[in-house]
């Protein structure tokens, strides 16, 4: 047993599970549907034990038919329920993309405001487990492109714990990206890092020399890089976007105004990504605050290869971030 004073560390996985469990307990209209969420315990063990607690009507295993069950989730939302649909990995999400784009994101507008679609779609994603090209996609930019969606990225344990509950307060479809490479990562839940709002980005670390803007798996890497950079006298701010659509322009403008230098980190392919969008927003909203051009470190534009050394080289690593920042501030 731990002493009461001890602050417990939990894994990102357990934080996700606690969030899910809490949501299920709070509202009996909430149910989880997805491949292997019940009897298997979740492909990544996020929903382990929930079947026993809530039963098969609320923890629903579904066949491998992404378009079918994501569409059914959308239909259930139209019908007055609060479904949480789990797409096992982002790599299979393209099979359901038509449902997301043409139904979830479109019905409210197309029906002249008559139909809300309060569905939450959770998608595991990320690179770093040597799963090769077809299982290493970063589709956050694709979803963030779609008008009518709210798109969240779970970059910290705090958001793993609380983002789902907030998403379930929304009347509109919400897509949540969770990162498999972080599942076993342990951390404390810091009260000051909890943001009970899914409209806002969050400064995870204050700094004055340069701003790193990132999301998802980039957040802890950026924070680690920032610690190292502090050792050489560079004080880096880290802004976690958290919400990829709609982007928090105020927070982006604020960090640029504070540090005047920006590096954007993203694991997705560089072209036409979130980093490109953030860059454009800075041009539009904070151009005269810049002391230097905005720079980006993003995923290499290749199908992600299997060998570890090539996979690692495909996405920005902590050392890459450190090197890049040093160059940007002339050290």
């Amino acid at each position: 047993m731990h002493e009461q004073q001890t602050i417990e560390k939990i894994t990102y996985r357990d934080a996700l599970r606690q969030g899910l469990e809490e949501a299920m307990r709070k509202n009996d209209k909430v149910f989880l549907m997805g491949e292997d969420v019940g009897r298997y315990g979740g492909a990544f063990a996020v929903s382990k034990g929930l079947l026993e607690e809530f039963g098969a009507d609320r923890i629903m295993d579904v066949p491998l038919s992404e378009s079918g069950f994501v569409g059914a989730g959308i239909g259930a939302a139209l019908g007055g329920m609060r479904p949480v649909v789990e797409v096992m990995t982002v790599n299979f999400s393209l099979l359901a993309l038509d449902q997301v784009v043409n139904n979830a994101a479109t019905l409210l507008h197309m029906s002249g405001g008559q139909l809300n679609v309060p569905v939450v779609i959770r998608i595991s994603c990320g690179i770093g487990r040597q799963l090769a090209a077809q299982h290493s996609h970063s589709w956050e930019p694709i979803f963030a492109h779609i008008a009518g969606l709210k798109v969240l990225s779970v970059g910290t344990h705090e958001d793993a714990r609380y983002m789902l509950g907030m998403a379930l307060q929304e009347l509109d479809p919400v897509v949540i990206f969770e990162y498999t490479a972080m599942l076993n990562h342990e951390s404390e839940i810091h009260e000051d890092q909890i943001v009970r709002d899914i409209k806002k980005a969050k400064v995870r670390r204050g700094g004055k020399n340069l701003s790193i803007i990132t999301y998802g798996a980039g957040v802890y890497k950026a924070l680690e890089a920032a610690e190292k950079l502090m050792g050489v006298g560079i004080d880096t701010e880290v802004l976690d976007l958290r919400v990829l659509r709609p982007l928090d322009i105020d927070a982006i403008r604020a960090t640029v105004t504070k540090t005047h230098r920006v590096l954007i980190i993203e694991e997705a392919w560089k072209s036409v990504g979130v980093a490109a969008e953030v860059t454009a927003l800075i041009m539009e909203h904070a151009f005269y605050e810049l002391d230097a051009p905005v720079e980006r470190l993003c995923g290499a534009e290749v199908p992600i290869p299997y060998p570890k050394h090539l996979e690692d080289a495909s996405i920005p690593q902590t050392e890459d971030i450190v090197d890049k920042v040093k160059k940007m501030v002339g050290k």
Binding site: K29, F31, D57, S67, G68, F69, V70, G71, A72, G73, I74, G75, A76, A77, L78, G79, G80, M81, P83, D98, Q99, N102, N103, L107, M110, S111, G112, Q114, L115
Partner: peptide, 30 residues
């Protein structure tokens, strides 16, 4: 569309509304 008549489209992606129908029926059942 007319929600008051429980008329849910008017869906123009062929077969795209079939999963919705399953989900709406699921919601009614629940």
């Amino acid at each position: 569309f007319d929600k008051s008549k429980k008329f849910f489209g008017g869906n123009a992606i062929v077969a795209g509304h079939l999963p919705l129908a399953v989900g709406m029926a699921l919601a009614d059942k629940k």
